[in-house]
Amino acid sequence: MSGFIATLERLDRRWIFLAMAIAVAGPIVYIGITGKTLPETSTPAAQAVYDAIEALPKGSRVLISYDFDPGSSGELLPMATSLVHQCAARDLKMVFIALWPLGPQMVTDTIKRVITADFPQMKEGVDYVNLGFQSGNEAVMKVMLTDFKKAFPKSEKGTATGQIPMLEGVTRVKDFPLLVTISAGYPGAKEWIQYVVSSSGGEITMVTGCTGVQTPQLFPYFPAQLRGMLGAIKGAAEYESLVNASLAPGDNSPVPPKYLEAQRRMGPQLGAHLLMVALIILGNIAFFAQRREKAQVKS
């Protein structure tokens, strides 16, 4: 026993890294082979995102801001996919923007995987448009409050915003009945709340999908300033199951894997969390054994 305790106290962190690799890789392989995912029940914050989109009349314009980069795409891209899936299925018009330089490529990727593949009837410029990246962080948000087309003068493909049919009548960010931000940090959901939602005097409805570390930081704004929130992959999985349930085809055909990404990732998350619990318990066993040894030496 004392040998085991001594090993725990001197444990090289690389063993912990190896254990984490196994805890994450095991479920990935299992889910990859079997295709089985864990069931999800939705929490109020995720349900609110779903309801906010469902409440919009057909043809409403939704502003979707990709405020993340490939680094956090593992956590955020599945929820972005589901958001676009729900918006497209509800015949909403999507205006994509990015305040992070590497955002537009991910917008293109989502458009290709969801809109082009499953909603070929949707036309670029009429049903959706990618306005690309604009530098300036909060400054861009402030300009959008007064003049949207000044903040985004042309689309990713170079078309002037004034010539895009679906943007006719849009002068300010307030002209969008719903604002969605997929946020990984700065600038992100917090800045949108501070500079856009607060400045509009509550006229703008906003929902967000954010990383795990941002979730506790954004809870204080929910639900007054933030109508709904998808916290990390857990929130994404809850939302994804809501969207899949409502859009399920009547013939019981399987849901395509691209719309199950978040639920598939809950398996590795389960493995990682259980390992963390085990590590904390082991760490405390070593801590108490060490403390008892010290007390015995003293006495």
Partner: peptide, 20 residues
């Protein structure tokens, strides 16, 4: 960049083992 971000899982585990 995804690899660098994924490193967090390993660092969180070692920090939890030591700090909690």
């Amino acid at each position: 960049t995804s690899t660098m971000f994924a490193l967090l899982a390993f660092y969180v585990a070692s920090a939890a083992f030591r700090a909690f």
